[in-house]
Simulated assay, not measured.
Amino acid sequence: MTVSDNNEWQSPGGLPQPSPESRPAPQWGEIAPGQWAPPPRPGLIPLHPLGLGDILGGAFRVLRRNPRPVVGAALVIRGIVAVLTIALMGLFTYYGLAGAIDATGSGYSQLVIGQQVQSAASSVFTAILGLVADAVLQGIVTLEVARGTLGEKLPLRELWARARGRVGALVGWSVLVGAVIIVAVLIVAGLIALLAITGGAAGVAFAVLLALLFGAAAVALFAWLGTRLLFVPSAILLERLPIRAAVVRSWTLTRGYFWRTLGIELLVSLIVSVASAIVLTPFTLILGIIVAISVPASAAPNITASFPVFAATTAISALVSAITAIIAVSATSLLYIDLRMRKEGLDLELVRFVEARQTGTELPDPYLPLLSAPPTATTTESPWG
C-alpha cells in the first residue's frame, strides 16, 4: 500500500484519523490528549490561587460584568445618603442664615455655639447613615463577586435574597467598629486637650508630642487590626457566621498572609484615592472659582453661596465614591476567596460546583464551611492568639 502526502493516515481498521489541526478545540473542562489545560475560568476570575493582576483585574471587571445590580445599587444607596446629607445641611444653613441676620451681641455668640452643636449632631447622623449604607453596599458587592466567580449573573432581587438574615449582623459589625473608633478618638483627644489646658506652656508642648506619638501608634494599630479583621464581613455573608465567629475566622485566614493582604489593600486604596482625587479636584476648583467671581464679599451672601457648593460637591462625591467603593469591596472579596483557595483548597470546591452544575447536579453552596471541618477554626481558637 502506498501512502501519498495528501492522504490522511489510515488506521488498521480502515477508519481515517483526524489530524491534530482538524480536531475541534477542547471545550471547558476537557483536556486535549497530550496538552495542558489551564485552570477553568467560568466567570469573574480563574479558579486557582490569584495573583495581584487577577485581583486588580477582577475588581475592575465587576463594574462591567453585571452593572445593573451592582452599579445601580451603589448609585441608589450613595444617592440616598447624599440627598439626606444635603437636606440636613440645607436646613441648618437656612436657620443659621435667618438667625445670623437678626442676632447681635450675646445672641450671636449663642447662635455660633448652637450651629457648632448642630454641625456635630449632623456629622454623627451622617456618619451612622454612611456606615449602614456602606454595610448594605458591601453585602451586595461581596455576594456579586462570590456568585460571579461561579459564572452567575444574578439580579439585585436575588442578591438581596441571599443576603437576607445577614444584613443585620453586617450593619451591627460596621456600627460596632465605627463606635469603637469614635470613642477611642474622643478619649485620646480629651486627655490631650486636658493636658494642654492645665499644664501651661510645658503641658502644651508635651500634649503636642503625645498627640504625635498617639497618632503614629493609632496608624500602626489600625493597620494591624484592620488587616486581621478585614474579612469579617465576607465571613458573615458567605459563610453565614455570627460576628464573634466571623472575627475568629478572619483572624485565622490572615495568619501567615498579613503583609500580602495589607500590601494589596494599600495598593487598592491608593488607586481609588488617586482616581477620586483626579475626578473631584477639577470640580471643586471650578465651583470655588465660580463662587468667588459671582458672589460679593459680604457675610450673608457667602453663607448662602456655600450651600450650593456643598450640595454639588456632595452629589459628585457620592457618584465617585459609589464606583470606588465597588472596586475596594470587590478587591477585598477576591482576597478572601484567594486566601481560602490557598489555605483550604476552595478552588477545587468551586470547580466541582461548576462542573456539577453543567451536568444538572445541584451541590451545596461551596462557600459555606464544610460540616466535616475541624471546629478549632471557628469555635476554640482565640483571635488574640
Results as ranks from 00 to 15, higher is better:
residue 28 W to Q: 08
residue 32 A to Y: 11
residue 51 G to V: 03
residue 23 R to Y: 08
residue 40 P to N: 07
residue 28 W to T: 04
residue 49 P to Q: 05
residue 23 R to F: 06
residue 31 I to E: 02
residue 55 I to W: 06
residue 32 A to G: 13
residue 39 P to F: 15
residue 21 E to M: 07
residue 45 I to D: 01
residue 55 I to E: 02
residue 30 E to V: 11
residue 53 G to A: 14
residue 28 W to G: 00
residue 28 W to L: 09
residue 29 G to A: 13
residue 46 P to W: 10
residue 39 P to H: 14
residue 49 P to H: 03
residue 37 A to G: 01
residue 43 G to L: 05
residue 22 S to D: 14
residue 31 I to T: 14
residue 34 G to F: 11
residue 32 A to R: 15
residue 34 G to N: 09
residue 25 A to K: 15
residue 24 P to R: 14
residue 37 A to M: 12
residue 53 G to R: 14
residue 54 D to N: 05
residue 51 G to K: 03
residue 54 D to T: 01
residue 33 P to S: 12
residue 41 R to H: 09
residue 35 Q to C: 04
residue 22 S to C: 03
residue 27 Q to G: 15
residue 52 L to P: 00
residue 53 G to T: 10
residue 21 E to R: 09
residue 39 P to Q: 13
residue 48 H to G: 00
residue 46 P to Q: 08
residue 31 I to H: 03
residue 52 L to C: 00
residue 47 L to E: 01
residue 48 H to A: 12
residue 36 W to Q: 12
residue 43 G to Q: 04
residue 48 H to P: 00
residue 33 P to T: 10
residue 43 G to W: 04
residue 41 R to D: 06
residue 25 A to S: 12
residue 35 Q to L: 13
residue 39 P to C: 09
residue 40 P to E: 14
residue 48 H to N: 02
residue 26 P to R: 11
residue 32 A to F: 11
residue 47 L to G: 01
residue 35 Q to Y: 10
residue 22 S to V: 11
residue 44 L to T: 01
residue 21 E to D: 07
residue 42 P to Q: 06
residue 43 G to N: 03
residue 41 R to V: 04
residue 30 E to N: 09
residue 47 L to N: 01
residue 31 I to A: 05
residue 26 P to N: 06
residue 26 P to D: 02
residue 38 P to Q: 07
residue 24 P to D: 10
residue 47 L to R: 02
residue 44 L to N: 02
residue 54 D to W: 04
residue 50 L to D: 01
residue 55 I to F: 05
residue 49 P to M: 06
residue 35 Q to R: 15
residue 50 L to E: 01
residue 46 P to S: 09
residue 54 D to E: 04
residue 30 E to C: 03
residue 26 P to M: 04
residue 29 G to N: 08
residue 53 G to E: 05
residue 40 P to Q: 11
residue 42 P to Y: 11
residue 39 P to E: 14
residue 37 A to R: 15
residue 24 P to N: 03
residue 51 G to T: 06
residue 39 P to S: 15
residue 54 D to G: 05
residue 51 G to W: 02
residue 51 G to A: 08
residue 22 S to K: 14
residue 23 R to K: 13
residue 21 E to A: 13
residue 51 G to L: 07
residue 38 P to Y: 08
residue 26 P to I: 09
residue 22 S to M: 14
residue 30 E to L: 09
residue 25 A to D: 10
residue 50 L to Y: 03
residue 33 P to A: 15
residue 23 R to P: 01
residue 24 P to I: 06
residue 40 P to T: 08
residue 36 W to D: 03
residue 24 P to W: 06
residue 29 G to L: 09
residue 55 I to H: 04
residue 54 D to I: 02
residue 27 Q to A: 15
residue 41 R to N: 10
